[in-house]
Write a protein that binds this DNA or RNA. Structure first.
Length: 570
RNA sequence: UGCCCGGUCGUCUAAUGGCAGGACAGCGGGUUUUGGUCCCGUAUGUGGGGGUUCGAAUCCUCCCCGGGCAACCA
């Protein structure tokens, strides 16, 4: 499986250079990476970058990647998250070598802690968290030693075993590594490595009431698995010193940690805490709300795994902070969707056109391509008649020269049908157009046009008596500002109130209903997340929502088509 | 104002002492029965000063700017 990098990549990122050097030097003969999510939320596009980096690296150099859940904090973690994370990784198209859990190593980790205690490198501290914080110092001033720091190894081991046995309440004691309270690196100032939490764990149940911290679990888990390259994001950089310290003092396999800059995307947020807040407070519809940058949200919205992987390949991997333009993600979506989506005509904001010279009651079936980018998808039939819907903004009473759609006296091509000329129209008392009257040219039929008439514009349309009412959900950016996380105050104040617009009655060509019936007959559901992806012509790419069914068709706008007219118009 | 990391087109990302290149976004044009796709063209960048060198985005130095670090979160 080679990844979808559209431009021939001739240069390597810094991680690839490190791996190549390690392979060349004989430091490793093969590489093993890991993707280590904490099951306390859903995966987002930032995780997709991490997944792409870890699995991609292993793939490039013939190694493998473990999926390891970093489940050391039972309070916030759950099986639901585990299951959805696995689903998302698989959906993206990656296959892990082993499915593992930090909690698989709780017994090993306990042993490592005892080893440190016996070596005089860890001690039980009875201080309160406030006292510990006070003695920790600050980044600009050193800390000082805890009064419990000089306990004997015997006393420490006894107390630690009693901690495990459940003899002490939460928060009453902790186990700390004995390193250096004056270290310029705050993490080296006797970090907490075990804490008491009488909490039920989603995998180990009630077997434990003490749990290792991230720092004490992660590196050792890497070492146990013999991970060669442990890749994480920049905020863990200062943890590396500690990571190495534990591995050295415990004499374990020398896994090495490397850090890259996490993904930031414009007009959205990537913090799991904030995403959880949006979900819990009902600002959005759930973790898979199509406005969210979660993998499940993107999937529901109609993004494809290919588009997301292409995006990850294009953004690169480096160590500087970044804020990627959302338009790049949208570009990747369009690029894939253009190739695979079925073209259909849907009028989102209908206005009626009457063709005055059309034979009364006549219905003609016209053929149109399913996808001009892929002739193998064949054609479909579309009914045409004397009453049609067109898009309201495809008509202008007083049109400027550059407007090559419909206006009085002007002609347009109806896609895959006839050329029509607008003769007349009616308005209501508020000035809204209520009906447009046109004549058509019988010899201008698509594919056999002998009329010689040239129409500048082509419009999409739907026959009134055959129109299928569908619901269409249009999306805009979730936030009004480029970088919500960087703004002052509550990030909720920057939510875009118009991020979702529901069009309850859009008018669709009947093929959409036929597709839905066919697909539901096959899978039992028209939206099992595998498609079909549509292009509603001249509008955008759309994907059936999970709530869609043959009785009520609902479509999410994945991304709009590029619209150069909208730009000119501004 | 301590330690650590980082600063290349608007946004990302290459160039590893030898012509600053690519992508997205932008702009201009061509093709088109989707104002889509496709094709062609075009503008824009090495944070600043000093130094080393025949030659510096790259090495040294000072400064400036951004980020991280004081959870019993990960």
């Amino acid at each position: 499986m080679s990844d979808i990098s559209p431009e021939e990549r001739t240069s390597k990122n810094f991680l690839e250079e490190i791996v190549e050097k390690d392979l060349a030097d004989g430091r490793h003969t093969t590489i093993l990476t890991r993707f280590p999510p904490e099951p306390n939320g859903y995966l987002h596009i930032g995780h997709a970058k991490s997944i792409s980096v870890n699995f991609g690296l292993a793939d490039t150099y013939g190694g493998a990647t473990n999926l390891r859940f970093d489940d050391t904090n039972p309070i916030t973690e759950s099986v639901e998250y585990v299951e959805n994370i696995k689903r998302d990784v698989q959906w993206l198209g990656y296959q892990w070598k082993e499915e593992l859990y930090a909690s698989d190593y709780f017994e090993n980790l306990f042993g490592f802690a005892v080893q440190l205690i016996r070596d005089g490198l860890a001690y039980v501290d009875d201080s309160t968290s406030e006292e510990i914080a006070a003695l920790k110092g600050t980044p600009t001033s050193p800390g000082s030693n805890s009064p419990y720091r000089s306990r004997t190894p015997e006393e420490n081991e006894d107390l630690f075993r009693k901690m495990r046995a459940g003899e002490f309440p939460d928060g009453s004691r902790i186990l700390r590594a004995k390193i250096d309270m004056a270290s310029p690196n705050m993490l080296m100032r006797d970090p907490v490595i075990y804490r008491i939490k009488h909490a039920h764990h989603h995998r180990t149940g009630d077997a434990w009431c003490i749990y290792p911290t991230y720092d004490f679990a992660h590196g050792q888990s890497d070492a146990i698995e013999k991970i060669t390259h442990s890749i994480c994001t920049l905020e863990f950089l200062s943890h590396r010193e500690l990571y190495d310290w534990f591995i050295e003092k415990l004499g374990l396999f020398p896994s090495k940690q490397y850090e890259f800059a996490r993904l930031n995307l414009s007009y959205t947020i990537m913090s799991k805490r904030k995403l959880l807040q949006l979900v819990n407070e009902g600002v959005v519809d759930g973790w898979d709300d199509p406005r969210l940058p979660t993998i499940s949200g993107l999937r529901r919205r109609g993004y494809t795994p290919l588009a997301i992987r292409d995006f990850c390949a294009r953004i690169g991997v480096a160590k500087r902070d970044n804020l990627i333009d959302m338009s790049l993600l949208e570009f990747c979506a369009r690029e894939d969707l253009n190739k695979i989506s079925l073209r259909r005509m849907v009028v989102l904001d209908p206005v009626k056109v009457v063709i005055t010279n059309w034979p009364e009651g006549k219905v003609e079936m016209l053929e149109s391509e399913n996808n001009p980018e892929d002739p193998a998808t064949g054609n479909r039939d579309i009914p045409f008649g004397g009453e049609l819907y067109i898009e309201r903004d495809d008509f202008m009473e007083d049109a400027p020269k550059k407007f090559f759609r419909l206006s009085p006296g002007n002609s347009v091509r109806l896609k895959s049908a006839y050329i029509i000329t607008c003769d007349d129209f009616s308005k209501d008392e508020d000035g809204n157009i209520t009906e447009i009257r046109c004549t058509y040219y019988p010899d201008s039929r698509s594919g056999s046009d002998t009329s010689g008439i040239k129409a500048k514009g082509t419009l999409h349309w739907v026959s009134v008596p055959h129109a299928v009412e569908v619901e269409v959900r249009q999306y805009d950016r979730l936030f009004r500002v480029m970088d919500p996380a960087a703004e002052e105050g509550d990030f909720l104040d920057y939510i875009n109130p118009e991020s979702l617009t529901v069009i309850e009655k859009a008018m669709a060509e009947p093929a959409l209903l036929h597709d839905a019936r066919e697909s539901s007959a096959v899978t039992g559901s028209i939206s099992d997340g595998t498609g079909p992806h549509y292009q509603f012509m001249r509008k955008g790419y759309y994907f059936p929502d999970v709530s869609s069914g043959p009785d009520k068709l609902v479509y999410n706008q994945t991304v709009a088509l590029r619209d150069t007219w909208a730009k000119v118009n501004k």
